Computed example of a mutant assay.
Amino acid sequence: MSHTLEAELNGLLGTMDWIPTFCTEHPELQSEGASIRQFFLALRDDEPMMMELAAKLADQIIGYCLPRKRVARTVQRYAKNLVDLIAAIATLRRDARHAFQKYREEFPARSGEAGEILAYVFVEHFLRAPMAIAKMHTKTNTTMPVFGADGVHVKYRAALDQLEVIYLESKVHKTIDSAAKDASKSIDEFRSGKQRSVELRLALDLGNFDQLDDAAQQALEDFLDPYSGAQTAKRLDTHACLLAYNEPAFEDVSGENANDMLAEAFSEGCEDRRATVSNAYKKRDLPEDKIVTFVLGLPSVAEFRKEFERALSNG
């Protein structure tokens, strides 16, 4: 059973192997405490690849927004006719696009979906945990965000016969301090409320598991059902957090040595950022060993939102 469930879940993953091209990870030894991985937007020559990153994120919206069974059904139905398949995929993209809120400069906090899809691709690529439910598909009002966790992913740990349920949180703020405090508040509220049970029920009832074989689906239900699941005691609930912020180091890099200058300047701030995030978690008494945090430095979070909106509109 363990090998079946592991293989079936891996089959739901995308590779997302383009992420390291656009987001450079700072190589640092993992210290004790919070698991924090730090990245900065990569440069081409001396230009930040903001537009390219936004375009790649916009390319993911079908898989991010729509249930896997709908996408699979479309591909199977039109697989023998390439022209019809292309048209059907265009329809899927249009439907996925309608789920996103319109970016409005006067209400930037309501335009966090660029950060949410960024968290989604980071978790799929680095944690190799497929999305359990397309929450964007459950929206009934496209002018409002989806409440609760920003996403739910699952990962089977075969060695422990344990299912890890990963609840996503993303914050895109001007400063890392503000992003970390806001994320800590959201995680704290999620852990102390009833939303966890709601998320598990959504995953059971509306999850992306229709493509799995019957044995794998039953195994997942045994883990996810908080009341009657035979394996619910072996479920591990964790969090993955994406914090994007304005990185000052971008302001002073230019010329042929821009990449080296940026890497050096970013490196100088790593310990302070790590302490900022860890302290925010400690103030809320959050279990740091159950949180994986991805920190991403951008030239401008406002421009990131605008570029993502532009990529959605032009695609």
Rank of each mutant, 00 (worst) to 15 (best):
Thr138Asp: 06
Val292Leu: 03
Ala233Phe: 13
Lys135Gly: 06
Asp188Val: 08
Asp225Val: 07
Arg37Gln: 06
Asp84Tyr: 11
Arg73Thr: 06
Thr276Ile: 10
Gly11Pro: 09
Leu298Cys: 05
Asp177Trp: 09
Ala34Phe: 12
Ala119His: 09
Glu106Met: 12
Asp222Phe: 04
Gly11Cys: 14
Thr276Ala: 11
Ile62Trp: 04
Ile36His: 05
Gly193Val: 03
Pro108Asp: 00
Leu204Arg: 15
Glu47Arg: 15
Tyr78Leu: 09
Glu25Lys: 07
Leu202Trp: 06
Leu82Gly: 09
Pro226Ala: 11
Tyr64Val: 05
Thr276Val: 08
Thr293Trp: 05
Gln38Phe: 06
Glu25Pro: 07
Asn141Thr: 11
His125Ala: 03
Asp177Thr: 08
Arg274Met: 00
Ala183Gly: 00
Arg235Val: 08
Ala302Asp: 13
Ala7Gln: 14
Asp46Gly: 10
Val277Tyr: 07
Phe147Glu: 00
Leu118His: 07
Thr4Met: 12
Thr143Trp: 10
Ile19Cys: 13
Glu309Phe: 08
Asp225Ile: 03
Asp260Leu: 15
Arg37Ser: 03
Gln217Trp: 05
Glu256Ser: 13
Met1Ala: 14
Phe294Met: 01
Arg94Cys: 03
Arg310Ser: 14
Phe107Met: 11
Tyr78Val: 07
Ala240Phe: 07
Val295Asp: 01
Ser228Pro: 01
Asp150Ile: 06
Ala180Ser: 10
Thr91Val: 05
Asp214His: 06
Phe223Gly: 10
Thr232Arg: 15
Glu105Ile: 07
Met136Lys: 12
Ala54Asp: 05
Glu307Phe: 10
Ala88Pro: 00
Ala203Trp: 01
Glu6Pro: 00
Pro20Gln: 12
Tyr156Gly: 02
Ser267Leu: 12
Leu206Ile: 03
Lys181Glu: 15
Arg70Glu: 14
Pro130Gln: 04
Arg44Gly: 11
Arg104Ser: 11
Lys181His: 14
Asn259Tyr: 06
Glu268Asp: 14
Leu13Tyr: 02
Arg201Pro: 02
Ile86Gln: 02
Ala55Asp: 04
Gln162Asn: 11
Asn208Pro: 01
Gln217Met: 06
Met144Ala: 11
Ala249Met: 02
Cys270Tyr: 10
Gly229Pro: 04
Glu307Pro: 02
Val123Met: 12
Arg94Leu: 04
Leu242Gly: 01
Leu66Met: 06
Cys23His: 03
Gly255Phe: 08
Phe122Met: 15
Arg94Ile: 02
Phe100Pro: 13
Glu251Met: 01
Glu189Asp: 15
Met50Trp: 00
Ser178Ala: 15
Asn279Pro: 03
Gly14His: 10
Ala114Cys: 14
Ser184Asn: 03
Asp84Gly: 13
Val301His: 00
Arg201Tyr: 05
Val198Phe: 12
Glu309Tyr: 09
Pro299Leu: 14
Asp46Ser: 15
Gly115Ser: 10
Glu251Cys: 01
Asp46Cys: 09
Gln30Met: 10
His153Ser: 11
Asp225Pro: 00
Arg97Pro: 06
Ala265Asp: 08
Asp177Ile: 10
Asn314Gln: 15
Glu256Ile: 04
Asp59Lys: 13
Gln76Pro: 02
Ala265Val: 01
Val292Arg: 06
Val146Tyr: 05
Gln218Lys: 15
Ser254Phe: 12
Ala215Asp: 12
Asp225Trp: 05
Ser300His: 01
Leu200Val: 01
Lys80Gln: 08
Asp95Phe: 04
His137Glu: 09
Val253Tyr: 09
Ala249Trp: 09
Asn10Ser: 14
Tyr167Phe: 15
Leu296Gln: 05
His125Glu: 01
Leu43Lys: 07
Arg274Val: 00
Arg273Thr: 02
